[in-house]
């Protein structure tokens, strides 16, 4: 038991430890992306996913090619791109909110041919 703990707190932190952390972050993001209805929640999930990728870039660069900077810069660029993406996405979200008064994905059906059962629901609602 003590041996196990001493192993945990000695030597270098293995590459796999970082990857497991980013894995958890990544699949939390996947879960959020697949299950949440709010557009903002989906955006938050996407941020999680992108962030976990950043960690991977940095870690692999640090462990495998410590002399080079590719992963480092890709992480940097990814951050910039996610900033762009968020800015545009939030502009869209605000616009949608202005038109539909909510930001749920299910209500964005304007361009879709309504399926038979949705038309029924609409009629009932009206």
């Amino acid at each position: 038991m003590g041996e196990f703990f001493s192993k945990l707190f000695s030597g270098t932190i293995p590459l796999e430890a970082y990857i497991v952390v980013s894995l958890i972050m990544f699949f939390s993001g996947i879960y959020g992306f697949l299950s949440r209805k709010s557009l903002l929640m989906i955006l938050i999930s996407i941020e999680l996913i992108l962030n976990s990728i950043d960690i991977n870039f940095a870690v692999f660069n640090r462990y495998l090619y410590p002399g080079n900077m590719e992963g480092f810069f890709f992480a940097l660029f990814t951050i910039a791109i996610s900033a762009c993406e968020t800015a545009v996405a939030i502009a869209i979200v605000i616009n949608i909110y202005r038109n539909l008064n909510n930001v749920e994905v299910d209500s964005m059906t304007e361009l879709r041919e309504p399926s038979a059962n949705e038309t029924e629901i609409k009629e009932v609602n009206e």
């Binding site: 903002l40 955006l43 938050i44 941020e47 962030n51 950043d54 940095a58 870690v59 640090r62 480092f72 992480a75 940097l76 951050i79 910039a80 996610s82 900033a83 968020t86 800015a87 939030i90 979200v93 605000i94 909110y97 909510n102 930001v103």
Partner: peptide, 29 residues
């Protein structure tokens, strides 16, 4: 990992900029 520069960018852009955007969007909607 020893990437101080990334740390700074992550803090400033993500935690600073993007989070503010999120907060604004949430407040607006």
């Amino acid at each position: 990992l020893g990437y101080q520069y990334l740390f700074a960018v992550q803090t400033a852009v993500y935690a600073g900029g993007i989070m503010v955007l999120f907060i604004f969007a949430i407040l607006l909607t």
